[in-house]
Write a protein that binds this DNA or RNA. Sequence first.
DNA 1: TAATCAATTCGATAGTTGTCGAAATGTCGA
DNA 2: TCGACATTTCGACAACTATCGAATTGATTA
Lengths: 111, 111
Amino acid sequence: MQETLLEPVAKPLRLSGARRTAILKALADPRRFELLQRIARAGCPLGCAEARAALPISAATLSHHVKELETAGLIQVRREGKFHFLTLRSGVMQGLIAILSALDTDHCPQR
Amino acid sequence: MQETLLEPVAKPLRLSGARRTAILKALADPRRFELLQRIARAGCPLGCAEARAALPISAATLSHHVKELETAGLIQVRREGKFHFLTLRSGVMQGLIAILSALDTDHCPQR
DNA sequence: TAATCAATTCGATAGTTGTCGAAATGTCGA
DNA sequence: TCGACATTTCGACAACTATCGAATTGATTA
């Protein structure tokens, strides 16, 4: 791995089938999606307190969703003492988009 | 990526939040995803018999998945007498990709 | 009309998941 | 060390979903 760290936009990652499914499942929950949108719009590292204020869910549930997003590799969690900060991992999203595009571009000449 | 002239790719649809969730849920099942890939690669209208041969599931389960994909608007089912033929609705996928791209392009300057 | 085949619906079941409150863990400041 | 605060884990529960076999609907053909 070389110079990827400060890149705002990473290259599309190659995703396995299992990973693809995990990501799609993570995205398929409206609260998690909302959370991702907040993170994307936040100027970036989003504190959990802000996240919680944005979503009408308990701390336990938020923790659950954050873990799902982290496990799927969609976000990165920077843990600084008491607080956690959430950022997107953009290469993953690009990888997913690449897969979805392939579904579309193989389009048929309609019989 | 070169801009395409030959493909019957539709314009991206604008998707509501509920629709987006329905689509992501539909995509998040591995069998449904596999089915979509088959349809995409098939040269197009895919018969249910072929679909069934490709997936290790019962007719009842296939019927269930086809309905899910149809309800989400990802595929169109042309019913001709005894047989049904499946085709992609490509505008929907483009719409989803547009939404997912938005998640990514708002990327932060990694403070 | 009867038999046959494709697909759907029904009913049941097992597994998954979103949610919470309560308890536990971990961090920081006084 | 103590207490306040942030987050996680635990245990439980309700809702949802993928799956199947059996029964059903609907179309084609003998």
